[in-house]
Nucleic acid binder design. Structure first.
Lengths: 333, 333
DNA sequence: CTGAAAGCGCTTACAG
DNA sequence: CTGAAAGCGCTTACAG
């Protein structure tokens, strides 16, 4: 392993001169020696030791990406998460940051993950609302959350207009003549992304004289799609439309429908959320609410990078727009 | 930030005693003081500085996951990659390793990524066959490749029986009466995962008296699915079946088909590869060749962990089986 | 069982 | 413009 010392010895200068030359502290070292040293370093295949630098300068260039891990399988099974993560890695690597990925279950793992490597910043995917206060208190580094509905002040967050998304879902069903509809998502508590989508959905339905019945709200965290579908279609009157809180969940219903010989949209119309594949449709013909995941990743990283550059810069919150993408999973009644 | 020194001061012992107590060097420190120190460390919220440890002990517990980046969008857009990565992260974190993700374009970035943080091992996703020799030479740490067809000796690799997969794809089409079929994948060179799938496919067809015509081999790296589909159906005689080299590509054809009002399987039968969602089907009703991605991740990590534990352990190569999953995307002719 | 010294590879801060 | 000293937080290796 080549170190500064080795280069210094070979160049006949001190380590400090090498360090300065390599770090481009330009006017602090004569350009000739600098050039000579750089060539030498290159030739010797020098690669700086990040641990040593991190120790000395207290700046690791490591960004932690913290993903909420659940019991419901691998987080990256939800294409939203994997696509978002992929974009984040690409963007941050371009800025010469290193990315450490952590799947987190308990709060305590967060601080450990951040501190032990002296992460300079962190991005959060998934719901951390109840812990945000604590996380910020324990980790005085730039943190950017996504999809948070926490009311903690001065936090950076990038979210989308979930409520509006719910409204759009209701509208498209209503405009197609649906009067009895259902909602399904991984519900937990009455705040957060899913709750907001439901709220927008429910409010719009009520305003239009078709209130969402309480027993047409299904929690997929507790019941598998197949059971829900079975139950739902057994109601009288049976809902003709379903708003799934994500494409991933809509997809589970497509699978369930296939098993139960239910056809979409003939027997049941479905509206999803995310529009993962963006240009194409992950589920063929799924009418869905699109969020711009690439843009979301860019904004999230943008905020983080700004804070990394100037730690005093004010916290930022952004709410991105959503959009109805009509395809063929909602039929006219 | 709490350091060993702080704890030592508070406990009235030397740093070394603290270090030993915390690292569980049991019989090297009296159990009473050890207990006392551990309690103190806990109370003070001590988190070891991994950079410092890494520097001192030359062991970072960092595993680099190196993913081939291409111009064709985000690597994690292919659900295979994201699901595999997710499993790897889960498995390795459970063993107290840290995971750094690198999207790599050029060879030189690999060594930099590994060395600068003193990674203890690395996993490779995507094709690195031409660089394996160099990578191994430059990085004397455990490396496990996936899906490699390199003939470098003594390398660790976990792959699947791609050739057999191709055979199975041909067989299911043949058994359903298809005589004119096509292949599509991101072809490049005549070796590697895609080439093998094609070879198995082509060989089986030939053996059964239905040789695959050269102009029915389409390279999706150069032509979008829609164009291919258009071209394919314009042939005389037009193929009735298509083997797509991955579910992700099959999905692109489903989308293309939707646009062009081509129905599957009525107008064209399709066989995919991967069976991403495993228990469910990513693309509804897609007949496909399943590989066990979870198992693949486990084996890959297993080999890596074994080498991490005992550096001298021999290299391992594993080829996992594949299996035909029949659903409804292949019709009888 | 416990500790003082030296070192991992780098940088900051001070001299010259 | 260049260098010697000290330190980042930890561990290895040697004494006792």
């Amino acid at each position: 392993m080549v170190t500064l010392k080795d280069i210094a010895a070979k160049a006949g200068v001190s380590m400090m001169t090498v360090s300065r030359a390599l770090n481009g502290n330009q006017n602090k070292v004569s350009s000739e020696t600098a050039e000579r040293i750089r060539a030498l370093a290159d030739e010797m295949g020098y690669i700086p030791n990040s641990s040593a630098r991190s120790l000395a300068v207290r700046s690791s260039r490591i960004i932690a990406v913290i993903i909420r891990d659940t019991d419901q399988g691998n987080p990256l099974m939800d294409p939203y998460t994997s696509y978002f993560l992929g974009n984040v890695v690409q963007i941050l690597e371009k800025q010469n940051y290193y990315i450490m990925v952590h799947f987190i279950r308990d709060y305590s793992d967060i601080t450990f993950g951040l501190r032990s490597w002296n992460a300079q910043g962190a991005l959060f995917l998934g719901v951390f609302d109840n812990e945000i206060r604590q996380i910020r208190q324990d980790n005085q580094i730039p943190l950017v959350f996504t999809d948070s509905y926490s009311n903690v002040r001065q936090m950076s967050n990038v979210g989308i207009d979930d409520y509006k998304g719910g409204c759009l879902a209701a509208e498209v069903l209503l405009s197609h003549g649906h009067r009895h509809v259902a909602f399904c998502g991984p519900l937990s508590g009455d705040t957060g992304v899913i709750a907001e989508r439901l709220k927008g959905f429910s409010d719009t339905l009520r305003k239009n004289g078709c209130p969402l019945s309480q027993d047409q709200i299904y929690n997929i965290a507790r019941i598998p799609a197949e059971k829900i579908l079975d139950k739902l279609l057994g109601c009288a009157p049976a809902p003709t439309g379903l708003f799934a809180s994500s494409d991933h969940i809509a997809w589970q219903f497509y699978n369930a429908a296939r098993k139960l010989k239910v056809s979409i949209p003939e027997d049941l119309s479905i509206v999803g959320f995310d529009d993962i594949a963006q240009d194409q449709s992950m589920i063929l013909g799924l009418t869905t609410i699109r969020q711009d995941i690439r843009l979301k990743a860019e904004q999230t990283c943008g905020i983080l990078l700004r804070h990394l550059d100037s730690p005093k810069s004010p916290s930022e919150s952004q709410i991105l727009d959503v959009e109805l993408i009509e395809r063929e999973s909602v039929r006219f009644i």
